[in-house]
């Protein structure tokens, strides 16, 4: 079953076309990665999916429902959650407060959601009274994911999770993503780090100047010579 579908989406910033005729599917429970170099349209794809940018043509479907004209808050309440680029935690607030804010609209059992997040990230439970700004980089990434998971989404969007992290932490980070995905949650990872992403993903898309250059299973993409070409240009 398809959770998120971008159907022939074309997005403009003013006069400039960023995305052209883009088709992307993320199925329930799938881990999909969206790869591409600088200025290939990765972030715009994510913004279009989330509703921060409206496509000029094409449709965005969430869980079978056409949400093209719906605002971001609606889409989020329908089961999307995002871990934003640079994490964007509420630095002077505690870990617990950050988590509680993540479940701001959720009407489910708050304690249960907290337990689930603490189960995934015991480190967050240990540090729940600490201010978010004082966490280490890896812990901050855990908190950013935990905060997103508090609304109990069906689909988690991740914007550049490896950005600004040391290689060791990047690896740890992707393990966390794989772990979250194993709980049955669909994840769409937008990344520059192709090898790392493809190692954990089921499928991958490669973007090049706003178009899908490659779309295949992760294993096939890892072997592909075209991936290097798409990244480095012809």
């Amino acid at each position: 079953m398809t959770l998120l579908r971008l159907d022939h989406v074309t997005t403009f910033y003013g006069q400039i076309r960023i995305l052209e005729d883009l088709c992307i599917d993320v199925g329930a429970g799938e881990l999909v990665c969206l790869l591409g170099g600088n200025a290939s349209g990765k972030s715009t794809t994510l913004k279009t999916a989330l509703g921060l940018v409206r496509p000029r043509s094409g449709r965005v479907e969430l869980d079978g429902e056409d949400v093209t004209d719906r605002p971001a808050s609606y889409r989020i309440s329908k089961g999307m959650a995002i871990v934003p680029e640079n994490r964007r935690l509420f630095a002077p607030m505690t870990v617990l407060e950050n988590l509680e804010l993540g479940g701001y609209l959720a009407d489910g059992d708050r304690e249960q959601a907290l337990d689930r997040v603490y189960g995934l990230f015991p480190r967050l439970h240990e540090r729940r009274t600490q201010l978010a700004g004082t966490l280490s980089g890896g812990e901050q990434q855990m908190l950013a994911m935990g905060r997103a998971l508090m609304s109990e989404p069906k689909l988690l969007l991740m914007d550049e999770p490896s950005m600004g992290l040391a290689p060791v932490l990047v690896e740890q980070n992707f393990e966390i993503i794989a772990q979250v995905n194993e709980t049955g949650m669909a994840v769409l990872v937008v990344e520059q780090n192709a090898n790392m992403s493809l190692a954990i993903a089921d499928r991958g898309y490669v973007l090049q100047t706003g178009r899908i250059a490659l779309a295949d299973s992760a294993a096939a993409l890892l072997q592909s010579e075209d991936l290097k070409k798409a990244y480095l240009g012809r």
Binding site: I76, L89, M93, Y104
Partner: peptide, 15 residues
Amino acid sequence: RAVREDPLAAEMMTM
């Protein structure tokens, strides 16, 4: 306080 710190992040948390 979340809105004060980062309105965009707050929006993304459906506030």
